Amino acid sequence: MRISVVEGDITERQVDAIVNAANSSLLGGGGVDGAIHRAAGPELLEACRELRRTRLPAGLPVGDAVATQGFRLPARWVIHTVGPNWNAGQRDRALLASCFTQSLAVARELRAGSVAFPAISAGIYGWDRDEVAATAIEAVRSVKPGSVELIEFVLFGDATAAAFTAALHRAG
């Protein structure tokens, strides 16, 4: 399994699945979540509403993951995960790691060969980007890849990309 760090727009990645740093409602929001919803088109919102009506009436729990189609995105699927909110007192590193491992479990179920992740919880949810980077790299390296041959961390901004690059180098 190859792991790479890319600075760019996750909605433009030519991968099988992109991971959405969603909120528990799955109904869109700001940051990465809003960008993915805008790029995927209104069909994504309708698919998320259907998930809420059927499988997830209380919303998606923190640390869990679920997939929808990618609709108008280059990616075939969107894997939605809810990161812990540091600002709301959700400071358990295991919950953050679960976002990455559960997203990869969903990717394996989909038989995705390539997956792009954002810096889950490093934005408005207030987690330190260095801690997110270290947790993300450790988490994805801890799981058996199955069908996943490529993991990209697609990040916004030099500082976040540098944090993930440093964490990847530290991990060997």
Results as ranks from 00 to 15, higher is better:
Arg2Cys: 06
Arg2Ile: 12
Ser4Glu: 15
Val5His: 09
Gly8Met: 05
Asp9Lys: 08
Ile10Gly: 00
Thr11Arg: 01
Thr11Ile: 07
Arg13Cys: 08
Gln14Ser: 13
Val15Ile: 12
Ala17Arg: 09
Ile18Gln: 01
Val19Asn: 00
Asn20Val: 03
Asn20Ile: 02
Ala21Tyr: 03
Ala21Gln: 04
Asn23Arg: 10
Ser24Cys: 01
Ser24Glu: 07
Leu26Glu: 09
Gly28Asn: 06
Gly29Cys: 09
Gly30Pro: 04
Gly31Asp: 10
Gly31Glu: 09
Asp33Gly: 04
Asp33Ile: 02
Ala39Cys: 11
Ala40Lys: 05
Gly41Arg: 08
Leu45Glu: 12
Ala47Ser: 12
Cys48Pro: 00
Arg52Met: 03
Arg55Gly: 05
Ala58Met: 11
Ala58Arg: 13
Gly59Phe: 05
Leu60Cys: 04
Pro61Leu: 08
Val62Trp: 00
Asp64Met: 11
Val66Gln: 00
Val66Gly: 01
Ala67Met: 04
Phe71Thr: 05
Leu73Cys: 02
Leu73Lys: 00
Pro74Ser: 09
Ala75Ile: 02
Arg76Trp: 11
Trp77Phe: 13
Trp77His: 12
Thr81Ser: 07
Trp86Cys: 09
Asn87Lys: 13
Asn87Cys: 08
Ala88Met: 13
Arg91Gln: 13
Leu96Ile: 08
Ala97Arg: 01
Cys99Gln: 01
Cys99Ser: 06
Phe100Asn: 00
Ser103Arg: 03
Leu110His: 06
Ala112Asp: 08
Ser114Glu: 04
Val115Tyr: 11
Ala116Gly: 07
Pro118Tyr: 03
Pro118Leu: 05
Gly123Ser: 14
Tyr125Glu: 10
Gly126Phe: 10
Asp130Glu: 15
Val132Thr: 06
Val132Tyr: 06
Ala133Val: 05
Ala133Leu: 00
Val140Asn: 00
Arg141Lys: 13
Val143Asp: 00
Lys144Asp: 15
Lys144Asn: 14
Gly146His: 11
Val148Leu: 04
Val148Tyr: 01
Val148Ala: 02
Leu150Lys: 13
Glu152Arg: 10
Glu152Phe: 10
Phe153His: 12
Ala162Asn: 14
Ala163Ser: 15
Ala163His: 11
Ala166Gln: 13
Ala167Glu: 03
His169Val: 14
Ala171Val: 07
